[in-house]
């Protein structure tokens, strides 16, 4: 009925968080990998704000397409009250229940998948740093 609203709400919050994180990360710092005190390799670490943008895109994109589906089914209308279910209390309570179950589950699943992607990315980054260290050690 309006399950996409839960994801859109999360997207709004994560977008604000991204802006705050971006401000803090004004200068992207290169991760310097040193060996025996000498700088031998450098690798750019993916800023957290960029990783947050992945989540934003999934949430905003998904919410936009789901909203279209709700328009298709006549559940979202372009005039007040915008949600057909909001017109009477019975439908409104069902809509809220759906938002709390389906909507929240959608937001949780998208966030979990994003966490998985971030985890894998971190592992790849760590492996790259390790390889850089090994390369530097072999050169010395």
């Amino acid at each position: 009925m309006a399950c996409f609203i839960a994801c859109a709400a999360e997207a709004a919050i994560t977008t604000i968080v991204t802006k705050i994180v971006e401000k803090k990360e004004k200068e992207q710092k290169d991760l310097q990998v040193s060996f025996d005190g000498e700088k031998v390799e450098s690798a750019a670490k993916i800023p957290f704000s960029r990783k947050l943008k992945w989540l934003n895109r999934m949430l905003w994109g998904g919410s936009a397409l789901l909203m279209f589906e709700h328009i298709w089914h006549g559940e979202v209308i372009p005039y007040f009250p915008f949600l057909t279910a909001a017109a009477n209390p019975e439908d409104a309570s069902q809509m809220l229940r759906e938002m709390a179950t389906v909507g929240v589950s959608m937001a949780v699943l998208v966030t979990l998948v994003w966490l998985g992607i971030v985890g894998i990315t971190s592992l790849i980054e760590k492996r790259a740093v390790k390889e850089a260290k090994e390369n530097a050690a072999n050169e010395n």
Binding site: M58, W60, G61, G62, S63, A64, V102, S105, M106, L109
Partner: peptide
Amino acid sequence: VGILCWMFWGSSLMWLVDAIF
């Protein structure tokens, strides 16, 4: 193209939850 990937994966996950319910 990355934008399209995130958008379609996001909507796919959401519809997957819908399908499960």
